[in-house]
C-alpha cells in the first residue's frame, strides 16, 4: 500500500518540465494555485482541465500512474464533495428525505470545488515528480534569499526540508520492519476491535520514534564531524540557471491566468 504513494516522490526524466529551472517551476505552481480560483463557471473549469492535461502530457507522466498514486487522497475529495452536496443551499431542490436535502447549487459547487482540489493536488504532484528533492530545496533557498535580510534562516530551513525528504523512504522501510517484528510477536493491528487496533499501534510508533531520534543524532554528529556550520562560507556544486524556457513558461502561465480572468462571469 505504502509503495504506491506518489506524494513527494521523484521520477527522473528528460521532458521540458524536468529540464526547467526549479525556481521557475515553483513560481509557476504558485501562480497556478492562484489561477485555479479564477475559474467560476464551466468554461473556466474546462480550460483548467485542458491546461492540466497538456501539462501532464508535456511532463511525460502516465496519467493512469498519476491517478493510481493519488488514490489514497480520494477519500478527502469525496468528503469535500459530500460536504458541499449536503450543506450548500440554493437553486432547485433535487432530493429531500427527512433532514437531508440536496440542492442543484450544492451539486454544482461540489463538483467545482472537487475539480479545484484535484487540480491543486495534481500540479503539486507534478512538481515533486519532475523535480529532485535537492533541486527543490536549492530553489526554495534561492527564492527565499530576500527573507534572509529579515533574519529568516532560509538555508537552515532548506536543509531541514531536504533532510526530511531524504528520510521518508528510510522511515517507510523501518516502519515495515517493525510492523513485521511486532506482528511476529502476535500483535494484531490488522484485525480486532478499534480500541485494540489503536493500542497495537503503540508498539510500532515507540520503536519508530526511538530509531528516528537515534538517526537524527547520528546524522547531526556526522555533519558536525565533516565541518558543517550552517550557511556561512558554503558554496554550491549545482548552479541554478534561468533560461529562455523558464521565462516562457512563466509568460504562458500568466497569459493563461489572464484568459481565465476574461472568461469569468
Amino acid at each position: 500500500m505504502l509503495s504506491n504513494m506518489l506524494l513527494g516522490r521523484y521520477i527522473p526524466g528528460n521532458s521540458f518540465i524536468h529540464q526547467m529551472d526549479p525556481r521557475a517551476k515553483i513560481i509557476s505552481v504558485l501562480f497556478f494555485m492562484v489561477i485555479v480560483f479564477f475559474a467560476n463557471h464551466w468554461l473556466g473549469y474546462l480550460l483548467l482541465i485542458l491546461f492540466m492535461l497538456s501539462v501532464i502530457k508535456i511532463a511525460q507522466i502516465n496519467i493512469f500512474f498519476l491517478f493510481n498514486g493519488l488514490k489514497l487522497l480520494f477519500f478527502i475529495l469525496i468528503f469535500t464533495f459530500l460536504l458541499h452536496i449536503f450543506f450548500t443551499r440554493g437553486g432547485t431542490t433535487l432530493f429531500e428525505w427527512g433532514f437531508i436535502q440536496i440542492d442543484s447549487e450544492g451539486v454544482i459547487t461540489g463538483i467545482y470545488i472537487t475539480i479545484r482540489l484535484v487540480m491543486l493536488l495534481i500540479i503539486t504532484t507534478i512538481l515533486t515528480l519532475t523535480t529532485s528533492p535537492i533541486e527543490l530545496t536549492d530553489a526554495i533557498e534561492n527564492l527565499g534569499a530576500p527573507l534572509k535580510k529579515i533574519k529568516v534562516p532560509m538555508h537552515e530551513l532548506a536543509m531541514m526540508i531536504s533532510i526530511s525528504l531524504r528520510f521518508i523512504p528510510t522511515l517507510m522501510d523501518e516502519t515495515e520492519k517493525i510492523i513485521k517484528a511486532q506482528s511476529a510477536r502476535g500483535s494484531t493491528f490488522m484485525t480486532g476491535k478499534l480500541k485494540s487496533r489503536v493500542n497495537a499501534l503503540i508498539p510500532i510508533f515507540i520503536p519508530l520514534f526511538i530509531s528516528a531520534f537515534k538517526r537524527a543524532e547520528e546524522m547531526a554528529v556526522a555533519m558536525e564531524v565533516r565541518g558543517y556550520k550552517g550557511e556561512e562560507g558554503r558554496t554550491s556544486y549545482r548552479e541554478l540557471k534561468w533560461g529562455l524556457k523558464d521565462t516562457s513558461a512563466i509568460v504562458i502561465i500568466i497569459l493563461f491566468g489572464v484568459m481565465l480572468f476574461l472568461v469569468r462571469m
Binding site: I178, G186, I206
Partner: peptide, 18 residues
Amino acid sequence: VKKHVGMVFQFPEHQLFD
C-alpha cells in the same frame, strides 16, 4: 501459526517499546 513459529529478526533490540 505465529504461536508455533517464533521469529527473532535482525537487530531484534529495535522492536523493544515498553
